[in-house]
Amino acid sequence: MNDTLYNDAILRLATDNPIDERLAEPQGTSERRSPICGSRVTVDVNLGADGRVSEAGMLVRACALGQASSSLLAAHVLGRTPAELAAARDALTAWLAQEGELPDWPGLDVLSPALDYHARHASIRLAFEAAAEAAERARDTAKGI
């Protein structure tokens, strides 16, 4: 294991996800899987009347980087709009490709050691991709689409 990539902060996040179970009746759900390593993240979302995430559930079966990224998402997903989650997903994708700045999401800087490990990027993106899609589905469900 590479100590620089799998540092204490990443390993701590990987074992400390504040959302560790799925929602019983989500308005929106999405599962994303990394074809490279087989990591898989499922995110459930319910939106409040204000259109913001009021409840979230997760099932994470991922490598340490995918788990750490999922923990960072989980710690700050409540209160976000579907548009904010889509923007975070897109900013994370650009940052990992070194085509954008560090996303405005608390704690993502801890994943900086993974920037040069392109094969790990898909796993890091899983939770953000699933959350954005689940929130879109929840919004569409609320609109009756």
Rank of each mutant, 00 (worst) to 15 (best):
residue 97 A to I: 11
residue 18 P to H: 11
residue 135 A to S: 03
residue 51 G to Q: 06
residue 59 L to S: 11
residue 33 R to Q: 05
residue 113 P to T: 11
residue 57 G to N: 00
residue 42 T to A: 10
residue 42 T to L: 09
residue 71 S to R: 10
residue 31 E to H: 13
residue 37 C to V: 13
residue 32 R to C: 12
residue 48 G to Q: 04
residue 28 G to Q: 10
residue 31 E to F: 15
residue 58 M to P: 00
residue 119 A to I: 11
residue 33 R to Y: 10
residue 21 E to R: 08
residue 64 A to M: 05
residue 41 V to T: 07
residue 144 G to H: 10
residue 69 S to H: 05
residue 93 T to C: 13
residue 135 A to K: 05
residue 21 E to I: 14
residue 19 I to V: 08
residue 34 S to T: 15
residue 117 Y to E: 11
residue 42 T to K: 06
residue 98 Q to P: 02
residue 68 A to R: 01
residue 119 A to N: 13
residue 97 A to R: 01
residue 134 A to E: 05
residue 94 A to Y: 08
residue 40 R to Q: 04
residue 89 R to G: 10
residue 75 A to S: 07
residue 110 V to N: 04
residue 129 E to G: 09
residue 55 E to S: 07
residue 46 N to T: 05
residue 32 R to A: 13
residue 14 A to F: 05
residue 43 V to Y: 00
residue 44 D to L: 10
residue 72 L to G: 00
residue 145 I to L: 13
residue 51 G to R: 13
residue 6 Y to C: 10
residue 30 S to D: 03
residue 69 S to Y: 08
residue 118 H to C: 14
residue 139 R to Y: 09
residue 65 L to E: 08
residue 48 G to N: 05
residue 84 E to Y: 02
residue 115 L to F: 03
residue 56 A to E: 09
residue 18 P to Q: 07
residue 1 M to V: 06
residue 63 C to H: 02
residue 72 L to S: 00
residue 123 S to V: 15
residue 98 Q to Y: 11
residue 8 D to L: 15
residue 88 A to D: 02
residue 86 A to D: 01
residue 15 T to A: 15
residue 125 R to S: 09
residue 142 A to E: 14
residue 105 W to D: 02
residue 12 R to D: 14
residue 5 L to W: 06
residue 87 A to N: 12
residue 71 S to F: 02
residue 36 I to Y: 11
residue 122 A to L: 09
residue 143 K to G: 12
residue 56 A to Q: 07
